[in-house]
Design a binder for these strands. Structure first.
Length: 467
DNA sequence: TTTTGAGTTGTTCGA
DNA sequence: GTCGAACAACTCAAA
């Protein structure tokens, strides 16, 4: 019987795992996770703990099937060489990862070891979603049309293997570092599957069926809360799509059907931005649209500090930033509001915000995070026009009408009535312990419109000259 | 090659 | 209070 290595990176799951499936077809399997200092030294404690607890849960699930997880610390290539020869393996299987770092790392490993990559992170490989002329899409809607057209009607997902044979050798694992558990995002595949089930299971599936409008409400649990699980592959996106499709078919009302489709669209957005990063890695360095390269940012350190700490004086912005600080997660609507505020009210380079989110979000995904920030800034693919600037007060009144979200994360404002909680500066007296607005929205908006317009005009003049 | 229609998530202004 | 237009003309996808 042959031995192969299942090099686990971002596929911490047994259900619907084509990489594991392929490895099992070859023989006995060594499940291996390598803690790469390059990747994990800059990660927040909360995120590291979520990953470690996910690994512990995976080890537990593997042991129930006659296997176990080998954990190693160090540079992947070096570790792989050791384990490969120590276990007399014939192949290494890994789920393909599309970030520039991952691709470079895997190319290097493949030079000296038989590394086989399997597509499992996405529903469709970036190479398969392209325009008829072979070039990549840069607009979401046609991308999503092709994505949906390629989706098989009866989307089949793989069951978890009943048995996972481990080779008859001794391979020492490094000890599992201790990690605090997170009640907001309990780690492990069982937890993820339960959450998916609760979100999509017909006939109730209230959150999914109400998703078209419910996802925008900051004061309600209208979103799936699955993003951290998707990021580490604790839950398969294919499985999520299959569940949503099933719920969509079982929907009793047209509105319910729409809710499920809107959620699937969100999953497609994720693949869209992964595809954008795959074809245009330069988006990590700067604007997708170069006509905005000349924007003169304010980049005020004190303003940036206030934004990070949730002390801007705009309750909805501050509530959201505190939610991020305290939980490692932020509601999607709140991400747009805080991002718009940083870029268009404070006129701070979107890359500063991108980096803060990347450090602090449990679900931080290089591609989706970058895509989201560039969308907000108006510099990205299919982005919001630069003159579309969120008004933090209107957004607050619209998506947190009673102010419950603000009260939850800003206890110092909890005593304010719904009418004034969105604009505490209008109460006449100062609220003790809460700052006055650090900028005036109207004035900031004018300033930003001018800065963006100037950058565009400069660019245009430059282009005219060069012709 | 040229032409045509469309494009995540908003806000403000004036009728 | 409600509604449509303007914001700024642009780029992309597809016929």
């Amino acid at each position: 019987m042959n031995t192969v290595i299942w090099w686990i990176r971002r596929d911490l799951r047994l259900f619907d795992n084509p990489t594991l499936q392929t490895a099992l077809e070859q023989g006995a399997v060594v499940p291996l996770f390598i803690i790469d200092p390059q990747l994990y030294s800059s990660v927040s404690d909360r995120r590291r703990h979520f990953l470690l607890n996910g690994l512990k849960a995976l080890d537990h699930d593997l042991r129930a099937r006659g296997s176990l997880l080998i954990l190693k610390n160090g540079p992947p290539e070096k570790i792989l060489h050791k384990i490969f020869y120590a276990s007399h393996a014939v192949n290494i299987y890994a789920e393909e990862d599309y970030t520039p770092y991952a691709r470079q790392r895997d190319n290097k490993v493949a030079h000296s070891l038989p590394l086989k990559l399997v597509q499992g992170q996405l529903v469709h490989h970036p190479m398969t979603i392209r325009k008829p002329d072979g070039t990549p899409y840069t607009v979401f809607t046609p991308f999503s049309k092709t994505w949906k057209a390629l989706l098989p009607a009866g989307l089949k997902t793989l069951p978890a293997p009943a048995e996972i044979p481990f080779p008859e050798i001794k391979l020492p694992s490094d000890p599992f570092p201790s990690a605090e558990s997170d009640p907001g995002f309990p780690a492990g595949e069982q937890q993820a599957l339960q959450r998916l089930q609760a979100f999509t299971a017909a006939p109730c599936a209230p959150a999914l069926y109400e998703y078209a409008s419910g996802r925008d409400r900051l004061d309600q649990e209208g979103t799936s809360g699955l993003s951290p699980y998707f990021h580490f592959g604790i839950l398969s996106v294919r499985q999520a799509v299959a569940a949503a499709r099933q719920a969509s078919t079982a929907a009793a009302a047209p509105g319910q059907h729409a809710g499920a489709e809107v959620w699937i669209n969100e999953l497609i957005w994720r693949e869209f931005y992964i595809s954008i990063l795959y074809y245009f890695p330069r988006v990590l360095r700067g604007n997708f649209r170069k006509q905005y390269d000349g924007i003169v940012w304010s980049n005020d350190q004190e303003h940036f500090q206030a934004w990070k700490q949730g002390e801007t004086g705009y309750p909805i912005v501050d509530a959201a930033m505190r939610q991020l600080e305290m939980t490692g997660w932020m509601h999607n609507r709140a991400r747009m509001i805080t991002a718009s505020f940083l870029v268009k009210d404070l006129l701070i380079d979107w890359r500063w915000g991108e980096s803060w989110f990347l450090q602090n979000l449990l679900d931080a995904d290089l591609a989706a995070n970058n895509g989201g920030w560039q969308w907000t800034a108006g510099t990205g693919t299919d982005a919001a026009p630069y003159f579309r600037i969120f008004n933090p007060v209107l957004q607050s009144r619209k998506f947190d009408p009673q102010g419950d979200y603000i009260r939850r994360w800003l206890p110092e404002l909890a005593h304010l009535p719904s009418k004034t909680i969105h604009t505490p500066w209008q109460t006449g007296s100062t609220v003790s312990g809460y700052p006055a607005p650090i900028v005036d929205h109207k004035a900031a908006r004018e300033h930003t419109l001018h800065a963006f317009k100037t950058a565009r005009n400069e660019q245009r003049r430059h282009n005219d000259r060069s012709i």
